[in-house]
């Protein structure tokens, strides 16, 4: 069963964070990924650039609207995703509880997948 961990946290810049905290954060994210990988549960992981770099599209009355900035303007933003494959929700929650974001005042959503692609075709999560 595939679950996506949606990591939400308030965005910091290298300046606001300080060099030391930034390095510590990166070290902990590296360790978290390595732990998931070594356990054989990690499918993919991605940390996103700050939401100020995002571009949002929508179509209004057949006109494509392009807007700078995130869809929802909030202090806490989606900052990364991790996809894991584990037997059940308890296992997913156990891994999610080790996410460093939780120690940074962040929030982790654990969401089961419905379908995902294999070689360009959708297959159900099971």
């Amino acid at each position: 069963m595939r679950y996506t961990l949606l990591l939400h946290y308030s965005e910091e810049s290298p300046e606001s964070l300080g060099e030391e905290a930034l390095a510590e954060g990166m070290r902990r994210m590296a360790a978290f990924a390595a732990t998931l990988h070594d356990a054989g549960v990690l499918l993919s992981a991605e940390v996103l650039q700050p939401s100020e770099t995002t571009t949002t599209l929508r179509r209004d009355a057949d006109r494509l609207q392009v807007q700078d900035g995130p869809f929802v303007d909030a202090k806490v933003q989606l900052g990364g995703t991790i996809v894991i494959d584990v037997p059940d929700l308890d296992a997913a929650l156990e891994w999610a509880s080790q996410a460093p974001a939780l120690d940074w005042g962040g929030v982790v959503e654990v969401r089961p997948g419905a379908v995902h692609t294999v070689d360009g075709s959708w297959v159900p999560n099971r």
Partner: peptide
């Protein structure tokens, strides 16, 4: 069912 909450005693 969807989130597959397990049927186990912790």
């Amino acid at each position: 069912a969807r989130a597959r909450i397990p049927f186990v005693v912790p």
